[in-house]
Design a protein around this nucleic acid. Structure first.
Lengths: 182, 182
DNA sequence: ACCTGAACACCGTTCAAGT
DNA sequence: ACCTGAACACCGTTCAAGT
């Protein structure tokens, strides 16, 4: 990649992070291009689809995902607490930007999504937590981890779109946790 | 309302129902106006906000909602089956149009939404089912019915946006049902 | 009182012309 | 090889002019 191309690429990503933080994942790409000081064509050259840009932004995000799973797994205490801690982390992780829960959760089941690799990291992190509980025999067995992602993702989506705060989300996570534990 | 105004109103609603069925709740209003043979201004006069049009479309919907609740309550059998039957009906009812689950579920908590009266009918139908189970002492008590709507609405939203079919949704409903029952 | 349709703003997307 | 920015399409929304 040419030096000026790389510079533009980096600026776009940096600015996009800022704009998406302010306005959510559905923010105008025109705005991103303008703030980054590039023509719209340049943005489209680097990121043909909107989700390619999201993918670039989520680069640093994956580290936090695995860290959060590690932290949850280090939890000493009842299974229910461990699971709820993880769920809360999960919701926080995908709710970083408005529109994030919906986008990430629907990409989860779509192999062609540009952000699929990022979703897989999240799915694997969730898998590790679920497996740990399964080994202890604490979990029902007729449920796939993808379904768990969808359940928690659904709650996060509703919370995101209805502007609910963490205390309002908590009881819903408890219902799901209790439904999964046996 | 003048005769020609009423005629236009009715045509717009009729056409909108068709367009939304084909393209979902986010379909172009321009398209609706065109097919209805009216200018865009006419559509905006009758329905200043998009949701005002949704509200008009959902007019006949409320009957089906209460019928579904009646049917669920008539169910003779285990509580779990009754609850799951209702949940499946609930998902079907709000998933009539693409984008419906998200829109209806987020309007549920917003007193200013133009479709709030329709949402209330749904909330009351859900309330009746939940109350019935509560009376039997079958349900946990630390959960509000609004939360139940959000939980099931969240699952429907994820299913809608991820193009999941009923068999894929079922296990998620089971988790929620089991989490609610005690 | 109601309707029309031109007009504007905004956004996504493409592409010919430039360096 | 990459960038620019004009250009197009589409859509929501408004409003002056009409009946």
């Amino acid at each position: 990649m040419r030096a000026d191309a790389k510079r533009n690429y980096d600026r776009i990503v940096e600015v996009a992070r800022e704009v998406f933080r302010e306005q959510g994942y559905d923010a105008s790409l025109d705005e991103v291009a303008k703030r980054a000081g590039v023509g719209p064509g340049t943005l489209y050259r680097h990121f043909p689809q909107r989700e390619n840009l999201l993918d670039a932004i989520m680069q640093s995000w994956v580290d936090r995902v695995t860290e959060a799973a590690d932290k949850a797994l280090a939890h000493e205490g009842p299974d229910r607490e461990l699971l709820l801690d993880w769920f809360q982390e999960y919701v926080a992780l995908i709710s970083q930007h408005k529109g994030g829960p919906a986008k990430i959760t629907s990409a989860m089941g779509d192999p062609d999504s540009p952000i699929i690799t990022k979703c897989q990291v999240l799915a694997e992190a969730n898998q590790r937590v679920i497996d740990r509980l399964r080994q202890g025999g604490a979990l029902r067995e007729d449920i796939e981890t993808l379904q768990v992602c969808r359940l928690v993702g659904g709650i996060a989506t509703v919370a995101d779109q209805g502007d609910l705060d963490a205390p309002a989300v908590r009881p819903m996570l408890e219902v799901v946790a209790d439904g999964l534990l046996r």
